[in-house]
Design a protein around this nucleic acid. Structure first.
Lengths: 201, 201
DNA sequence: CGGGTTCTCTACCATTTGGTAGAGCCTGCT
DNA sequence: AGCAGGCTCTACCAAATGGTAGAGAACCCG
């Protein structure tokens, strides 16, 4: 965020551009102009456009995983833990919307980089799945297929967060108040879906 | 789906390509090769690449809206109606995955075509919102902000469907049986989230 | 058959793209 | 001062891209 080295500035600007416009639609020249630098400077730090993209994905994945792992290491249980992470993702969507934009760009059927991201986040996903399974067994979450539950949670949260971003891009930027209200609604929605049935342990 | 006119074949192939690879990454030459036709033939039917994309969006939006409206016109109530539509979207994800891919491509922050799609689906969204509000008032759905609920439903279903597509693109294509199982899990998930609280009308 | 329309072709163009080669600058070190 | 290395520049290039111009084939209708 500060006046870091050129290399870091490149990664930063590229993350934003790839996140909003996509990889193919972002030329090195466009990035260079945004940076106030010649494109050859970019190619000095990164041997090719693809290498730059990979580096951006690596960095973003590291950030994402860190956010999740930090929040997961607090040892909360059941819905409280899920809620905490959802709040975190929303905070991320407000403070660093480019991150979710990049996730959107990478996890696309045609993307060749999906595996790269998957490699980074797989351990975190595994841990999340284990957590869900454990909490279901303990009766603190409605029991269901943990894989599917994880997928639903992921899709819902990222989807809603991204949708807010789309609305911002379109004519109707949601106010901060509206965003907060929506987050609370979403949490209520998830809470209802996750609450264990009355008759369980 | 059949051996239709060249124009229809172009629209068909373009839909698939734009849906998986995105607009920017799909060149007219690539489309032409896939069609067994010269690119100038494409430009004969559509004055520019952008015009072709617009036409593809228009057609896809019409298809999407039709599917929703057909299903909504059966007059089901409460969760049953929501379920029916979710099933429909899943069927769509299996039979015409390109459609959801295109939605994904268009509803991206950087997309200039988002408004175009929005124009098509807005009436359907309005009707859906009205439906949700009505069913909440009647106590057949858990009461919450209908806008948020709609957003959550949309994000969850499209997100999960797209995710299945991504997994198919990656190493682990889910079997049809697994897909069906997941759909049932998803419906259970939504059902729990939507069920009216015990103490309501 | 003849004339016009519909369609697809060959040929070409200007621009943009990712990428290379190599010269110069600036900074810090001896 | 001088030199070395890190960094950014000017100058190019080959390929691909979206798009244009116009010829010719195939078809329909009289």
């Amino acid at each position: 965020m500060a006046e870091h080295s050129t290399r870091e500035r490149i990664l930063d600007v590229a993350l934003g551009a790839y996140g909003t416009d996509g990889f193919a639609a972002t030329s090195l020249d466009a990035l260079a102009e945004q940076l106030g630098v010649r494109k050859q400077t970019i190619l000095y730090y990164f041997p090719s456009k693809q290498a730059l993209f990979d580096a951006v994905v690596d960095e973003a994945a590291r950030d994402l995983v860190r956010v999740f792992d930090e929040e997961a290491s607090r040892g909360l249980r059941g819905i409280a833990q899920v809620e905490a992470i959802v709040r975190h993702v929303f905070r991320l969507a407000v403070s660093r919307p480019e991150l979710l934009g990049l996730v959107r760009e990478v996890t696309r059927p045609g993307s060749v980089t999906a595996e790269r991201l998957a490699g980074h986040v797989a351990p975190t996903f595994d841990r999340a799945r284990d957590f869900l399974q454990r909490e279901m067994d303990a009766g603190r979450l409605r029991s269901s297929d943990p894989d599917m539950l994880l997928l639903s949670l992921y899709s819902t949260v990222v989807g809603v967060a991204t949708e807010l971003e789309v609305q911002r891009a379109l004519g109707t930027p949601p106010s901060l108040r509206a965003t907060v209200a929506r987050r609370q609604e979403l949490i209520r929605f998830l809470r209802a879906a996750l609450a264990p049935e009355p008759g369980s342990a």
